[in-house]
């Protein structure tokens, strides 16, 4: 099974056309987490699956050029830190950890529910980037030479 070559032209073309749509849909799901079913976890996995699509269709080399795994990995910890910092802001502004510090806004509006959509975005970043990095590490691992010095 050669992974670096990728699949046929048809698959590649369809992937190229659909990947942005899938990512957009994932972002939509993340942003509407407080209004409709879905949220950070579901949307994050959708985005991760889009990246995975690219990896399966184009192979490892192209994906390495397209995506920087190291930056994705840093984004995971950045997302986690920002989530924690929001919690700490809760202590500073409202006196208790993870309090809803922002204005609640109007029910059923996209920009409502205070801090909830923001946390949803951070979770989306953690899940999408993190799961892709996880699968990437599994995929680049060679049984023959992996890990031995």
């Amino acid at each position: 099974m050669k992974q670096s070559d990728g699949m046929t032209v048809i698959v590649k073309t369809i992937t190229r056309m659909s990947v942005w749509l899938i990512i957009l849909y994932g972002i939509y799901i993340i942003l509407h987490g407080h209004l409709t079913p879905g949220g950070g976890f579901a949307g994050g996995v959708i985005i991760a699956l889009a990246f995975l699509n690219v990896m399966l269709a184009y192979g490892r080399k192209y994906t390495e050029q397209w995506l920087n795994v190291r930056i994705m990995y840093d984004l995971v910890s950045t997302g986690a830190i920002l989530f924690l910092i929001i919690g700490i802001f809760g202590i500073a502004l409202k006196g208790s950890f993870l309090a809803n510090i922002l204005d609640l806004g109007e029910l059923f509006k996209l920009e409502s529910a205070g801090v909830i959509p923001i946390i949803d975005i951070f979770i989306g970043v953690i899940v999408s980037m993190g799961l892709f990095v996880m699968v990437w590490t599994l995929a680049v691992f060679h049984l023959e030479d992996g890990g031995e010095e």
Partner: peptide, 12 residues
């Protein structure tokens, strides 16, 4: 995921 990673290493 963690169990799969361990299983792959064990196979290796």
């Amino acid at each position: 995921a963690m169990l799969v990673a361990l299983a792959v290493r064990l196979y290796q």
